[in-house]
Write a protein that binds this DNA or RNA. Structure first.
Lengths: 135, 135
DNA sequence: CGGGATCCCAAGCGATACTG
DNA sequence: CAGTATCGCTTGGGATCCCG
């Protein structure tokens, strides 16, 4: 199931003395930035409602099993809506929920940061690897 | 939210198509939202420059080995600055780099989303678990 | 088509011991 | 104090088979 599901959003707790996180964004990371969730949400966001196979094809390298797992998790968290059409052959469609769309600005800002600073990270890595080897 | 819509033709870092992501924020997630990086960056952000043990104590449950690994990664990516003081006993201090501070607004927005919507997620989970089990 | 069940392996992390 | 090195377990994910 969920990797670290012990975290419960307890509103009563004071500024997080939670076990492994002294920060309030730990739980969000688990929810939104788990292993495959970001590509899934992004694909659903850009291509709208689509079927299981479409997701499978667009998100390369993901296996159906994992795709199902993540999709279930996102559905459970209310970020994705799953619609089952009892036809032959069966048809299932996934889309971002209204609640899931509240992540829009966040993703946009994230994408913007990526566009502006990703190469800086790359430079930092090369610099580190270059003279970091000599220590 | 269509900020990065036009930069889809971004050349991949390595050769070929990007492995696991049809989305431009995949790499950022790896850099910023890896396993322990969020608590580390948050702690460094809120408590300023501090030593290894301080980080170790504040980020509960993290082992020194993993803390070192993540710290090295963050240093390599240019988000964290490591300062070694050749004393006896040795003293090492960590702080967020200038570049790392560019993540500030992002974290703020993330924290805000968490504060507003985390209980919604919890409700969705309970609803899902409640009647999802009977299905 | 859209999965669930099973087996299995590789990565990640914890625990422990040791160094400068 | 601030790590590095090694071992061993836990776990996520791939591969395969099968069902509705």
């Amino acid at each position: 199931m969920t990797v670290a599901d012990e975290r419960k959003g307890r509103p009563a707790a004071a500024a997080g003395t939670d076990p492994e996180l002294a920060c309030p964004i730990g739980p969000v990371v688990d929810i939104v930035f788990s292993r495959w969730t970001t590509p899934i949400l992004w694909t659903l966001h850009t291509h709208g409602r689509q079927r299981f196979v479409e997701l499978e094809r667009r998100i390369t390298r993901i296996t159906p099993k994992v795709l199902t797992q993540r999709l279930r998790q996102l559905e459970r968290d209310g970020l994705v809506v799953r619609t089952y059409h009892p036809e032959v052959p069966p048809r299932v469609e996934y889309e971002i929920s209204e609640f899931g769309r509240s992540l829009g600005p966040l993703f946009a800002q994230l994408a913007e940061w990526a566009a502006q600073n990703l190469d800086t990270v790359e430079e930092a890595r090369q610099a580190y690897d270059g003279q970091g080897a000599g220590h």
